[in-house]
Structures are given as C-alpha cells and as structure tokens.
Design a protein around this nucleic acid. Structure first.
Lengths: 227, 227
DNA sequence: CGGCTTCTATGAACTGGTTCACACAACGTG
DNA sequence: CACGTTGTGTGAACCAGTTCATAGAAGCCG
C-alpha cells in the first residue's frame, strides 16, 4: 500500500470514537493492516443474520443501519458517516450480524477483520480498557433508546429526535435539517403519516417550518422544554 | 476477612458470565478485594441517576432492575439472582446509574468498586478481551429486545417471554412459572389487564393453565411456533 | 414543455392496547 | 372466623397511532 494513503487512514481511525483516546502509534499499526473497499449507492455492506467478522470504518459516503421485522417492515437504527464505524459488535464477539448496513451514497470503507483486530488488541491493554468504556456508553445509549420507546409517545420522541438531528448538524451552524419525513418515520418506527401530522402541529405552534426534504428548527427552546 | 469465606467468593465470581472464562487466580485476586453487603427485602441497592462506581455480584437473594418514566410508571428490565451481577456499566464507564436496583428478597452482595476493578483489569489483558465479548453480547441482547418491542405485538411478546421464563426455571424441570400477572405486565411494559386477557386466550387454546401467582406451560411447542 | 417520480398533506375507518370500574377468589392474620 | 390484602377476570369507554385512499406540489429528465 502506498505511503501517501497511510497518514489519512491513521487520522481517520484516530477520529473514531471507538478508538479516539489511543496513542497514535497503535492506531497507525491498526490502520496499516486494514483494506479499503468501495460500495455504490444502494450497495449492501452486510445483511442481518450473515456471519460477520469485520469492522468497517467509513472513509467517505454514508451508511444506513437498519433492522428488519421479517415482514418487509423495517426500522432505521442509525446513519453513520466518515470517521464513524459499523460492524464493531461482530468484531468483538464473532456473532452473526444483528443489523443490515447499506450504503446510501457511494461509500468507501476501511475494513479490519476480526483476527487482525484481536491480535492487535491483545497486546494493548489500554486499548481494551478504552474500548470497554466506549462499548459501555453505547449499551447505555441503547438502553435509553429502549426506555424512550417504551415510555414516550410520538410527539415527545419526535421532538427529541429533531433536537438530536439539529445537534448533529449544528457544526454547520444551520437550524435546517435535511431529511424526508419518510426517513424520520423510519427512525422513530412510526408511520410516515403520523410524523407528518405531528410536524404540522409543531409548525402551527411556530416551532419548526417545513420544506420539501427539510425541516427548519425555529424554536429549539420550546422543543427542548416540551421533550 | 476470614479465609473460610474466600473460596466461595471465588467460585461465585467464577460463575459470573461476565468473568466466566478467566483463570482462577485472577478471579481470586478480584474476590479478595471485594466486600459483602446485606440488604433487606425492598431495600434499594442503587437508584437511577445516582453517581455509581461499584459492581454488585449477588451472593444470595434476588434483585429487581427497573427503569422509571418520571411519572410513577416503571418497567422491570431484569431480575438477577445468585451468580449474576448488577451495576457493571457504571463500573466500566463511571457514569450515573441508568437503572434502579431493588432487593426483592433479603439479599447479600459482593461489592467491587471501580478503582479496584480498573486496577485489576489493567494488568490482565485477557480479562479485558473476555469482558469486551460479554458486553458485546449484552448489547446485542438489548438491541434485540428493542427490535422485539418495536415490531412485535403483545401476544407474540408475551409468548416469547413465557418461553424465556420457562427456560430459566427449566433447571428445576418444572413447566410451572411462579410469577404474578402484574409482574409479567411490568416486564412487557403493558397493562396488567392486557396480559390477563391474552393469557386467558392462551389458556382457552390449552397452551397454558393459570393459577394464583403461577402460570403452567402446557404446550411449549405451540407457543414457540406462534412466537 | 410535458410527464414521471418523489415528497408532503389530510381525512376516514379501524385497531390494539389503555384506563376505569367493577366482581370475585385465595390467602394471611389478629 | 371475619376482614383486609393481594391477585385474577371482564366489560365499556377511550385514545394514539395505523392503514387506506386521495390529492397536490416540487423537482428531474427526455
């Protein structure tokens, strides 16, 4: 592999929350052992139930992580972009994929397989500790998502989700969220129609304004106190 | 601490799924540093939101783990008995408790605090790896619970849960599950009445028979194919 | 430009589960 | 043994969110 690729890969892994706090050298060692792979828009990275033993770090593009319900029904669990990763669970425990990952846009990933990763990890105790902490946090977030889903009705969940989406894109300083109502519905695991009706209620209150393929937060404070 | 206590503690930790695959000596080292604590029936081990930095391994008794919803509404997340543990998340990431743990019966636990645990762990890379795998599995199970809750209706979730409860008590070879319908409802996060009505439907089909404080599985196969 | 596809909007009928309001049976205890 | 307490059984009214049906508006492309 050309030397020129190496530094950017290292930086990529370094920005990965999963590994963020590790020494540079360790990360470089891991990056050196990965391979890149490309997927077209709509291409499958992996599917629920498949045996899986690799971690994908997104270099560029966007991946949608979803779980299905047997019947065509499915829910979007997460979107992951550059610097984040998918498939880390299969990496750690070697079990079949628990979700499906699909490229939404043309996407390039850095692939690290289980054997490589475990070998690398077993000689770096500090890395393992950091990983434990990261995975704990993720478990915690999932627990919270479960609780929200159990206890909160659609209006509250929607408000919460809007604020999250707003927060993510807040780096770009814009209150405008680029997302379709159908995609939002899939995240909240409700029907598109319900999302639409609730959004219009928020709009009537002046909390948001709606556009085709976008939602603009007008009163984040009101949304926050509501949620 | 008396020598006589030590071996049983070590065995206890050894049976803990979180640590099961570790060498005996490592486990003994950890057990030696813990302290036992006793709780009366109904006593609080810890509460949601509290700062937490300790792991409790149940020596005897039974603990109910629950999450609340602000409004008095709450859901039972798990029951943990001897050999299992609660509070491991706070241990790993030092965050506030994400759930409440209450002793259902008089309960004795072995307490290991964060500092102790991290010190112990950082000199045992293999342990960290095993832990990572264990936590991954737990994350996976939570994900699955979330998916079930999203996609399955009450009858299916109930059937599934009955089989799980049956499986747990299967060691004692009895198809009779000792649980009240209210407790079951709290696990499934539905009303007691709904559980009752569905149970009676199952009973009409001859799949279960109901008693005061107990449910007896008559046709596990039918339940399984249904769920 | 005209025509297709995607996205938003909205109402009507339906449904799974909730809350409320009971009735009743089993158990425990003064 | 009478009485509170805990647990089960059931119907009626209600409600949040679903499905179905339909319509218009915005963008995309030959």
């Amino acid at each position: 592999m050309p030397d020129s690729v190496q530094p950017s890969r290292t930086r990529l892994l370094h920005d990965l929350p999963l590994l963020a706090r590790l020494p540079e050298a360790d990360i470089a060692a891991l990056a050196a052992r990965g391979r890149t792979r490309d997927y077209p828009a709509g291409g499958a990275i992996f599917r629920e139930g498949e045996p899986g033993d690799s971690l994908h770090v997104v270099i560029s593009g966007l991946i949608r992580v979803s779980v299905g319900a047997g019947s065509g029904d499915e829910a979007t669990v997460a979107h992951v972009g550059p610097g984040d990763c998918v498939g880390e669970l299969a990496l750690l425990d070697g079990r079949p994929r628990s979700a499906t990952a699909t490229a939404v846009e043309p996407t390039r990933t850095l692939v690290v397989d289980r054997r490589t990763f475990v070998a690398w990890l077993s000689e770096r105790p500090a890395a393992a500790l950091a990983l434990l902490e990261t995975i704990s946090l993720r478990l915690r977030r999932t627990d919270e998502a479960l609780a929200d889903f159990c206890f909160l009705d659609l209006p509250h969940r929607l408000a919460k989700r809007l604020l999250e989406l707003h927060g993510v894109s807040n780096g770009s300083r814009s209150p405008r969220i680029r997302i379709t109502q159908a995609a939002l519905a899939s995240m909240l695991v409700v029907s598109r129609e319900s999302v639409n009706k609730q959004l219009n209620r928020f709009a009537r209150d002046g909390w948001v304004t709606l556009g085709r393929g976008s939602i603009t937060i007008r009163d984040a404070h009101a949304l926050r106190t509501f949620a």
